[in-house]
């Protein structure tokens, strides 16, 4: 978990610069048939189709959940007590929206989280605000509302365990978890 998280957060910075490139690349090679093979394929961490870039289902396959999670970036981090999405993460969410609109067989649950500095109830409500901010952003970029659902875990599921800002900043997050859609 810890390792994963550090990876993802540093990747967000690099992902930003490559994002446009990869989105364009995706758009360029979009072939309506190409994604059919992914129909009903397993959910998060699941199995991709054939014919993608790199090994099917791996992070280098742009249709794979692993690509969504690791290359686009599955999470947004927040300032203390805030739920607004900073420009840095708007581009991550633009990538998420693009991916979701391309890979229409997937649905997403957006999990909102808070750091441990706060009461349980308030943090549940704060996590919901964060998840909702991501949901609204994705909808504003064209993702169908029916494909998105939110849940808040408040401070119940930290990924970083220390009691310092270094960990808190990683725990104040909204994570978009994709899974194979009900429609498939």
């Amino acid at each position: 978990m810890t390792h994963n998280m550090n990876g993802a957060s540093s990747m967000n910075f690099t992902a930003r610069s490559f994002l446009l490139v990869s989105v364009l690349a995706l758009a360029a090679c979009t072939n309506p048939d190409r994604f059919d093979s992914a129909n009903g394929a397993g959910g998060a961490g699941g199995v991709g189709g054939t014919g993608g870039i790199g090994a099917p289902g791996s992070a280098s396959d742009p249709r794979s959940p692993a690509y969504f999670q690791q290359t686009i970036g599955d999470r947004v981090l927040f300032v203390v007590d805030q739920s607004s999405i900073t420009p840095q993460y708007q581009s991550v969410l633009d990538g998420q929206a693009q991916w979701l609109m391309t890979n229409t067989d997937y649905v997403a649950i957006i999990e909102g989280h808070a750091d441990e500095q706060g009461t349980r109830e308030y943090n549940l409500a704060l996590g919901a605000r964060r998840a909702n901010a991501v949901q609204e952003y994705l909808i504003s970029r064209g993702v169908a509302p029916s494909r998105l659902r939110v849940i808040s875990y408040g401070k119940e599921r930290p990924i970083e365990l220390c009691s310092d800002e270094a960990c808190y900043s990683q725990n104040r997050r909204a994570v978009t978890i994709i899974s194979a859609g009900l429609s498939s």
Binding site: S83, L124, A125, A128, R129, A131, N132, Q135, S152
Partner: peptide, 9 residues
Amino acid sequence: YSLTTGGNT
């Protein structure tokens, strides 16, 4: 109780 809908509690 509290109810959250549309991100608002």
